[in-house]
Design a binder for these strands. Structure first.
Length: 989
RNA sequence: GCGGAAAUGGCGGAACGGUAUACGCGUCUGAUUUAGAAUCAGAAUUUUGAGAGUUCGAAUCUCUUUUUCCGCACCA
């Protein structure tokens, strides 16, 4: 029998599907192991070879764990809500559900071809109502919760209401922006609307006016992680800041736990650091500066009075002005270095404090700032802008008047949206001060700040009243203590992490289980879930800018209540934040996952996916996991115990070089009507040596036209990689591929070929360098593709795709096949294997096992190659050895392994997937002699065969006795001899 | 600017302080073959980006430096 991979693979794929070979058991005496892939968004383009890389690795590992006796959960599904399907729907009018269905079918087909051992009975699709019922249900739980900082966990909103009814909000310690206080009496007297509004300030899912990333081109709001360099992640459209009423998730409440939880998971430092930076913890203080509204007599008194002891801030502030500017600083020790303040242009106090004189200037600055997109603002970093408001703040300790500016280097959404500028200690403040000629006060001892700010946290504070003479670190603590003591502010920790905007003004997402009555949002009762997406006439916003769901007639909603349903939909990350839990119990209609199953399957043991989700999905999934843990639905608060991030596979693009031809060597006129393409090597030639142009010209004369190529004007054009073989262009097919190439002329190499240039870059349709797995499976088989993808290099590494090497892996499988078959007949024998073959086998068992345990998938392919090479050389056809080799191979090349197992070795069909992983026997590796490499001063000079049983001393004596060793020693005695038994001998001369 | 990862033949990459380039591709030579593909036999290339240190011994550990990739970036 020949190695007919297409037939073999079809056969076993069907067998696995028919026999549900890979279904995970929910109850098992076996230990469990959960291997998860980041599920894909089913895009219209289908899979390219980069996508399955991680899936192949996780599949190999899952299959390996099964061989090791684990009950393995290895599911797959689709993150099927998302923008591309909707954009397509807008263009074509086709319902996104239809495109999504088609795309999923295509993906499934492609995935199936690669022979994955997924338990498809657990498939989830985030866009199916059965699934998003639970997305909505979890949203309800989050809405109905608040974060109690006393217990440091999420609690039911009922406990908060009970507290309000008892004591008002005084004893409540919650994560909330709500600053006012009320009594129990007041609470009870509030209207329903007022109560709802107050609770909104505490809920973990809440509705609020917030500054959002608005993308006009997509017509929706985007989360911070969906905005890259001021452009939308999907489509690259500009994004601007806009104040909108939006659903948000109070992820900030979990900032600290999201940070500390990182220490408990086995992820790469790169991802952990990305999350740490994203959360951006900074410890400091918030300080209130009174605004010197009208220069009143009381303020003057403070200026003259430096004895702070009798400075009654609260009383003074009231008489002077109740306006204060609150700032956040990580450097309270530098408070005496403040020489101005800067507010974000959007800061609510700006209008109130601006004096009449500066009204116009401030107004125009604000307008200019608001017109700038996020991108412009970022691009403009070096361009210092700002405007004085005319107002002054009062330094809380010195009483000095401090000018208040606005500037767009201060962000409205971080901290308090205002900074105390300390130019001597902060480079941005220093730049701002220099630019506007504001005096810079130096409060560091013996530090020169004439060339720039001193931002180090080492040194001594000077010229700072009670902080003078203190080392910086000490001064921080002292300053915070003083600030708190005088009621000026508080020691405070800030996080860069913002609450996550949770609504999208789009159609293709989960509807909220929310309706409005008298402008108050209410949750839909569980009995009516899921709230299904209504049909709409168009997938566009309404004329008054409402989201597409506003187009739905009341009757289009399967369930509706109140004045109207919520028109926003949930963002893409909603469904992916708990899918790993749903896989455990995908058909449960009562719960999103039963407690028993969540307890059994517990954390994901191995999660494989791209690092691009570092600050999106991976953070949100951790957040939801912690929330669900707090509420007792699951028993663990980190979802993914170990994670590996596969590297990107880059494409190899090919180029042809279009070159303008001049009518003569001097003339600037070019030949029109015909386009010329010059072969890569010739172009390089005339680029380096222009005198060779005439040589190339000769070739053109041969073609019937006399003209001269101009190497300076030549440019590269992407050409479809399917037209290239070994950098040689298939000229005829190229000419026929596009109308504009029809009459192209080519300047060819000596041998008449056209050589293309190449470059490694991201795979994309527009670069014509996409390699799909389908054609490779067709040509070489899935097993070859699987092994080749692994063979490319370490999983985590970014690596270029190059199909050239695939034949080597394919040949390996054919060579393996020949150990079992010759001329179509099975040649496996029952005769015992000889010692060499057993050694080869056990050496391989050890390596395969070790390498799998450390996720080194690439080296295992070569381990298996070496094994097959050696067994071939040994002419080993012994069943005893080959059957174990088949099991070793099974995770990598499962179809081939199944076929050999059943057909050549005669075992029952399908059982190799559940066979036992071979046991390594170290005795098999023991040899009578060891070949010792002998080095002199660390350089290997000779090899000596010595008995394995020799002690270090015996080895030393035996080596010294050799005449060749004496030659290297030049007759002298070695200064030192190192013998590592069984390994090496080193002599120091 | 901050943080992370990396640098080894013509190429992808092995080497868990102990014989540097295993394995594969490509190249060259020979055999087989109607041709192609496949198969078999054989060959060549480097001193691990650079510099120092630790060590009997360094691609591997430490420091300095250069380059590349990735992420973040006025976060007070």
């Amino acid at each position: 029998m020949e190695y007919n991979f297409n037939e073999i693979e079809r056969k076993w794929r069907k067998y696995w599907a028919d026999h549900k070979t890979f279904a995970a058991e929910d109850n098992s005496v076996k230990p469990k192991y959960y291997v998860l892939d980041m599920f894909p968004y089913p895009s219209g383009a289908g899979l390219h070879v980069g996508h399955p890389l991680g899936y192949i690795a996780s599949d190999i590992y899952a299959r390996y764990k099964r061989l090791r006796g684990y009950n393995v959960l290895h599911p797959m599904g689709y993150d099927s809500f998302g923008l591309p399907a909707e954009q397509y729907a807008i263009q074509t009018g086709q319902h996104p559900a239809i495109t999504t269905k088609e795309n999923i079918a295509r993906y499934r087909d492609q995935l199936d071809k690669i022979g994955f051992s997924f338990d498809w009975s657990r498939e989830v699709q985030t866009s199916s109502p059965e699934y998003y019922k639970w997305t909505q249900w979890i949203f309800k739980q989050i809405f109905n919760s608040w974060y109690n900082t006393k217990t440091d966990k999420a609690e039911s909103i009922d406990s908060l209401i009970a507290a309000f009814e008892k004591n008002g909000n005084t004893g409540v310690e919650a994560v909330s922006e709500f600053a006012n206080t009320f009594t129990a009496e007041e609470w009870k007297n509030y209207s329903e609307k007022e109560q709802s509004d107050i609770l909104m300030e505490y809920r973990l899912a809440y509705l609020a006016d917030s500054w959002v990333n608005w993308c006009p081109a997509l017509g929706t709001v985007l989360a911070n992680d969906e905005v890259i360099n001021g452009l939308s992640e999907r489509g690259g459209h500009p994004v601007e800041q806009k104040l909108m009423r939006q659903w948000s998730m109070r992820i900030k409440a979990y900032a600290e736990r999201l940070l500390t939880g990182l220490d408990t998971v086995d992820w790469t430092d790169a991802i952990k650091d990305m999350q740490r930076n994203w959360i951006g913890k900074s410890v400091g203080a918030s300080v209130k500066f009174a605004v010197d509204g009208v220069v009143s007599s009381s303020a003057k008194r403070i200026e003259n009075d430096n004895s702070h002891a009798d400075l009654d801030t609260s009383a003074e502030a009231d008489t002077r002005s109740d306006m204060t500017i609150e700032v956040f600083t990580t450097r309270p020790d530098t408070i005496f270095g403040v020489s101005f303040m800067v507010l974000a242009p959007e800061h609510p106090l700006v209008d109130e404090i601006t004096t009449a004189e500066y009204k116009d200037a401030i107004e125009s600055y604000k307008t200019a700032a608001s017109l700038k997109s996020e991108r412009d603002r970022q691009a403009d970093v070096k361009n210092i802008t700002g405007q004085f408001t005319g107002a002054y703040a009062i330094h809380p300790f010195s009483g000095e008047k401090i000018p208040v500016w606005i500037g767009d280097y201060v962000l409205a959404s971080y901290g308090t949206g205002a900074v105390m500028a300390v130019p001597c200690g902060d480079q941005r403040d220093w730049d701002f001060a220099k630019h506007f000629d504001i005096p810079i006060k130096n409060i560091f001892e013996n530090v020169d700040i004439s060339e720039g700010a001193y931002a180090e946290k080492e040194g001594t504070i000077a010229d700072s009243d009670f902080l003078s003479g203190l080392p910086i670190k000490k001064a921080m603590a002292v300053a915070i203590a003083k600030i708190q003591e005088q009621g000026l502010g508080l020691g405070k920790t800030n996080y860069r992490l913002r609450d996550a905007i949770f609504s999208r003004q789009r159609y293709w997402g989960e509807p909220f289980p929310v309706y409005y009555k008298n402008d108050i949002p209410y949750l839909v009762d569980d009995a009516h879930l899921p709230i299904e997406l209504p049909e709409v006439d168009k997938y566009l916003p309404t004329e008054d800018g409402e989201p597409p769901l506003a187009r739905a007639e009341k009757s289009a909603w399967k369930y509706s209540e109140g004045d109207r349903m919520e028109y926003n939909t949930m963002p893409g990350w909603a469904g992916s934040s708990f899918y790993f839990l749903r896989y455990m119990d995908p058909h449960n209609t009562k719960e999103f996952v039963s407690k028993e199953k969540a307890d059994y399957w517990n954390q994901v043991d191995l999660y494989i996916g791209g690092s691009e989700h570092a600050t999106g999905h991976l953070l949100y999934a951790r957040f939801w996991c912690k929330f669900l843990f707090d509420k007792g639905f699951i028993g663990f608060d980190e979802p993914f115990k170990k994670m590996i991030n596969q590297g990107m596979i880059l494409g190899r693009s090919s180029f042809v070089y279009k070159i303008p031809m001049m009518i003569s060597e001097q003339a600037s006129e070019t030949v029109k009507n015909t386009s010329y393409y010059i072969s890569k090597n010739l172009l390089d030639l005339i680029r380096t040596d222009t005198t060779l142009v005439s040589k190339v010209k000769m070739k053109i004369i041969g073609a019937g036209v006399e003209c001269y190529p101009n190497p300076d004007l030549a440019y590269a054009v992407h050409v479809d990689i399917s037209l290239i073989d070994n950098d040689k262009l298939d000229i005829e097919t190229f000419k026929n591929s596009r109308e504009e190439y029809k009459n192209a002329e080519f300047i060819l190499e000596e041998d008449g070929t056209y050589i293309c240039g190449s470059e490694v870059e991201k795979m994309s349709k527009s670069k014509f360098n996409v390699q799909t797995p389908d054609e490779l499976v067709e040509k070489f088989g899935a097993d070859t593709l699987r092994m080749y993808e692994m063979f490319l290099g370490p999983l985590e590494q970014t690596k270029p795709w190059d199909t050239k090497g695939i034949s080597g892996v394919h040949n390996f499988l054919r060579k393996l096949w020949r150990l079992f078959y010759e001329d179509g007949k099975v040649i496996v024998t029952d005769t015992p294997a000889d010692k060499a073959s057993l050694k080869t086998l056990h050496k391989t068992i050890k390596k395969v096992e070790d390498d799998l345990e450390r996720f080194s998938f690439n080296t295992n392919v070569s381990n298996l190659m070496i094994c097959v090479n050696e067994l071939t050389e040994q002419k080993c056809h012994s069943k005893e050895v080959l059957e174990q080799l088949v099991v070793l191979l099974a995770p990598y090349a499962p179809h081939t392994a199944e076929e050999l197992w059943a057909e050549a070795l005669g075992y029952p069909a399908g059982t190799v997937s559940t066979a036992h992983f071979p046991t390594f026997n170290p005795d098999m590796l023991v040899e009578a002699n060891v070949s010792y490499p002998v080095s002199f001063n660390g350089k290997m000079r000779m090899k000596v065969d010595l008995p394995t049983a020799f002690s270090a001393k015996e080895v030393e004596d035996a080596v010294l006795a050799l005449p060749e060793a004496q030659k290297w020693l030049e007759g002298k005695a070695p200064k030192k001899v190192i013998v590592v038994p069984g390994k090496i001998v080193n002599m120091v001369v």
